[in-house]
């Protein structure tokens, strides 16, 4: 298991961290633990995983939430926070969720923006690659036709 902080070294310490109703295990290497001043006996502050010198001063202009406050409480203040902190939180979200891409329903108004089509295009592209890998060229050309049609609509 690679260290969740540097993503380079092998992790040697494990910490269970509670996030809302969930808990997740953080794996960290000794060097990163030392750098962040974490003692093996104490708990792991999640803020240690999220914060670094560059991002701690980020602020959401709409609701006034700072990234430091987010790291402490793990609660967003508004949808704007997702724009401002978006890249910083991605590894963390990946850790507590099944991935970082929504696969479920969308609101009826989002649907009219062509979201359903866009998702269908992504699915078809995947299917196309699979078909080509399997050398199922007839199937691939069928998929390609569908793709072209959809892409023209969007």
């Amino acid at each position: 298991m690679l260290c969740d902080v540097c993503h380079i070294k092998e992790a040697t310490l494990n910490y269970t961290v509670v996030v809302g109703e969930t808990s997740t295990t953080i794996h960290i290497c000794e060097e990163c633990a030392k750098k962040k001043g974490i003692l093996p006996a104490s708990g792991f502050p999640l803020s240690g995983l999220l914060l670094n010198a560059q991002n701690r001063n980020l602020v959401c202009k709409r609701c006034g939430l700072t990234y430091q406050e987010f790291a402490d409480k793990l609660k967003f203040g508004c949808s704007g926070c997702y724009e401002v902190f978006g890249n910083e939180i991605k590894p963390f979200i990946k850790k507590i969720q099944e991935g970082t891409i929504h696969k479920g329903r969308f609101p009826s108004d989002a649907d009219t923006k062509g979201l359903r089509k866009k998702r269908r295009i992504i699915e078809l592209k995947k299917a196309l690659k699979k078909a080509i890998d399997k050398e199922a060229y007839e199937r691939a050309s069928e998929i390609r036709d569908k793709l072209v049609k959809l892409e023209n609509e969007v």
């Binding site: 996030v19 809302g20 109703e21 969930t22 793990l74 609660k75 967003f76 203040g77 949808s79 997702y82 939180i89 963390f92 979200i93 507590i96 969720q97 970082t100 891409i101 929504h102 696969k103 479920g104 329903r105 969308f106 609101p107 108004d109 989002a110 979201l115 866009k118």
Partner: peptide
């Protein structure tokens, strides 16, 4: 109109509720 993003789905206060 709900708060929604293509990548994170329905936006929620806590990241543990994101997506669906």
């Amino acid at each position: 109109v709900y708060a929604f993003r293509e990548d994170y789905g329905y936006l929620t206060s806590c990241p543990t509720n994101l997506g669906t």
